[in-house]
């Protein structure tokens, strides 16, 4: 129990530090607020002939783009960033597991990114005057909570992968839009060729988009929503287990090869 309290304190401290750092970074501010806002503006404009009901669909979808972009670029770089600033050795040396520290950073990033949904909401509501109502508010909140969990744990997997495999990280720039497409953030994946559907099913962001769209726009059955929630929980569990192994391998490799602070 004492350990859990200690970890909670580390997570909070790490999250606070991350917010302080990232909120002064123009690139992060762009990814979290400006880019989703522009995508929301485009989405609202392009889909406006489909009527006001699409307002909430675009708000949720553009918010998810901000969530994914911040996960990819900020959480993905959360360990690399420490390496750049020369603090990685210290963090690895402290008794708290590295994964707990990164968890705090990811939590801060994902929660900040939820702000992009709020910004899109204000844009759609004030500029376009759409009546934005969430069809199933309680289920929506649960979906949002599970989305945060799924994205935070996904961040725990990609950060060590990016550090250990610079070749994978080099694809970072190219990985932003494919997930927007495959996860169905702003249009249904039924528009895509059939062979892409199994790939979508393997992505936690797809199930997050499903749950959030179904509960915000309405029209989803409780069975469909439950499946999306279940898949997010399942993926979160897989990500946590996978990340434990990845962190262990990463730290062992860095120590044995003495490459902790080296690119």
């Amino acid at each position: 129990m004492r350990k859990l309290t200690l970890y909670a304190r580390v997570i909070l401290a790490s999250a606070e530090m991350s917010v302080r750092e990232t909120m002064t970074d123009g690139f992060v501010v762009f990814g979290i607020f400006v880019q989703p806002l522009i995508i929301a503006l485009l989405g609202l404009w392009m889909l406006r002939d489909r009527g006001g009901d699409y307002g909430i669909f675009v708000v949720v979808g553009s918010g998810l783009t901000g969530l994914w972009s911040s996960l990819l670029f900020i959480s993905g770089n959360s360990i690399t960033h420490e390496r750049w600033t020369g603090t990685l050795e210290t963090l690895v040396g402290v008794p708290t597991p590295m994964g707990v520290i990164v968890l705090g950073k990811n939590l801060a990033n994902v929660l900040q990114s939820i702000g992009s949904m709020a910004v899109s909401y204000l844009l759609a509501s004030l500029l376009f005057g759409y009546p934005l109502t969430v069809a199933q508010p309680i289920q929506f909140v649960i979906s949002l909570f599970l989305t945060v969990v799924a994205f935070v744990t996904f961040g725990l997997v990609i950060a060590p992968i990016f550090v250990m495999n610079p070749d994978v990280q080099r694809w970072q720039n190219g990985l932003e839009f494919p997930i927007y497409i495959l996860a169905g953030f702003l249009f249904p994946i039924a528009l895509l060729p059939g062979w892409t559907t199994p790939i979508s099913y393997l992505l936690a962001p797809y199930w997050a988009a499903q749950a959030l769209h179904l509960t915000s726009s309405g029209g989803g059955t409780s069975g469909e929503i439950s499946i999306a929630w279940g898949m997010m929980l399942l993926f979160s569990l897989v990500y946590v287990l996978l990340s434990r192994t990845l962190f262990r391998v990463m730290l062992r490799k860095a120590r044995s090869e003495a490459t902790l602070g080296l690119e």
Binding site: L42, L47, W171, Q172, G174, L175, F177, P178, I181, L191
Partner: peptide, 21 residues
Amino acid sequence: ASKVLMPLAQILFFSFLGMYA
């Protein structure tokens, strides 16, 4: 990634969004 995959994905994203609209 920057000059082939990203542009391809961007075209596909906005084209599918436009076709959906």
